[in-house]
Design a protein around this nucleic acid. Structure first.
Lengths: 242, 242
DNA sequence: CGAGTGATTGACTGGTGTCAAACCCTGTGG
DNA sequence: CCACAGGGTTTGACACCAGTCAATCACTCG
């Protein structure tokens, strides 16, 4: 089953699971949901009753600001749990939407909690998953607060490329990144104009390029250097890119 | 015991615990540690073997940037778990230091994990604690990325005042906030000069004042409005300030 | 009473945001 | 098959907020 394999591949990046754990995961029930580009998956204020794993596509968490503008908080690809942060929370403090046509698989909290009681190790693995989420949030604070525009953009590109690679979504130096320049600005805390100007610089230096929702990395080590990117905060046991 | 009461008061802000849970918490062993102003409690790269609860004082998480400068990520007061994010993580991706003379109480992970296996509900409560931490990180992303300098400062003041009040650390409209303007800048992603200028504005409008490590809130509703502060993201069952 | 740290103020500069307009690509409909 | 509409991208002009530099003031501590 796709859900089981996707979950396992992701969880094994950071956690050790035994055969019984794997079996338990494969037996989870899955409620498939397809999302259209731009569609909200869960909305700020909702009471979460299930949590989902991304099977395909790209989702994002976001805050809605006074005046309706958005602050995107994080981007989620295959294997991620875009609403895991709602696990033990009464009401969502943020929303989650699809950035392109996507598919997710929902698991009721009731079933997850039973799983955690029966197999604490699996609970710890998913807890770890939410802690890595938090580490990514911390890095985003640092990125958006203390790095210059161009480094900020480069760091984000490096992170998404690295994460895509680790789940097997990079081919020929390309990965998906279906964000408009406006959305990149709403993620990185800068205006579309500034995003555009720095993007041009990155293009001209032949480090990376973003076109048609695809990120092409021409020079990985230069990109990582430009963004001060050090993947330690992603807490993976194996580190694919070098 | 101080540890038990401090932990219980904090956990009960968001979780329901039964009598047996409370007993189990009161029986946790506590390794008291006193920290001097500025001292590192745990350092980026360390392997965490225990997690601590703040008994008194103020601690902060921070990233060390290229060139040695810091990005502060979050501030922690009585009842907080400043290194809970290291619970299921091999190596710390950030450091934690004391912002004034402080006291914390460490609990070995081994003991916590045994507790979680025996009493899953308590594990869920502490998991929730780490999820609320993450919610605070998300709000920090939004604050530092999309609010103007003065709103950013006001939002941070509102948050720390609100959290201080909820753990009983506000008296006569005052709470501790032992940060220099430089440190405020390193937390909010702006230069000391900008911090200073906005702080002056906040002072002159008689909304709040920061002096000698103390934050005095003269007009709570104005401060909350100025910072677009909505405490929903703190996920407390009861909301003290109004 | 100096030394040191932090707060305060001013002058200047540069990066970033806003405004505005042209361009490009794609999908739609006549 | 072409014209059009709409969203996204690109470019330039301009203003202003925020950063750097620099100097002075205030407070605490030995």
């Amino acid at each position: 089953m796709i859900l089981g394999e996707t979950m396992l591949r992701k969880l094994k990046q950071h956690s050790r699971l035994d055969a019984a754990d794997e079996t338990a995961i494969r037996q989870l029930s899955c409620q498939l949901r397809e999302l259209a580009d731009g569609e909200d998956f869960i909305h700020q204020g909702d009471e979460p009753r299930s949590s989902a794993v991304v099977l395909s596509g790209t989702l994002a968490r976001y805050h809605t600001l006074k005046g309706g503008r958005r602050q995107y908080l994080s981007l989620h690809i295959k294997g991620d749990w875009p609403d895991a942060q709602g696990l033990f929370i009464d009401r969502m403090d943020h929303s989650v939407c699809a950035m392109e046509n996507s598919a997710v698989c929902s698991i009721p909290h009731r079933e997850l909690i039973k799983l955690f009681r029966d197999r604490p190790t699996l609970g710890f693995a998913i807890w770890r998953e939410t802690l890595i989420d938090a580490a990514i949030f911390r890095e985003a604070i640092t990125n958006n607060s203390s790095r210059s525009g161009i480094r900020r953009l480069a760091h984000f590109f490096a992170e998404i490329y690295f994460r895509s690679d680790s789940i097997g979504l990079v081919s020929e130096n390309n990965c998906r990144l279906p964000l408009t320049q406006t959305q990149l600005g709403e993620l990185l805390g800068m205006s579309i104009i500034t995003v555009h100007r720095h993007l041009q610089t990155i293009r001209k230096s032949r480090v990376a390029d973003l076109k048609g929702g695809n990120l092409m990395v021409r020079n990985w080590s230069k990109l990582a250097a430009m963004g001060d990117f050090d993947p330690q905060y992603l807490h993976m046991r194996v580190q694919p890119l070098r």
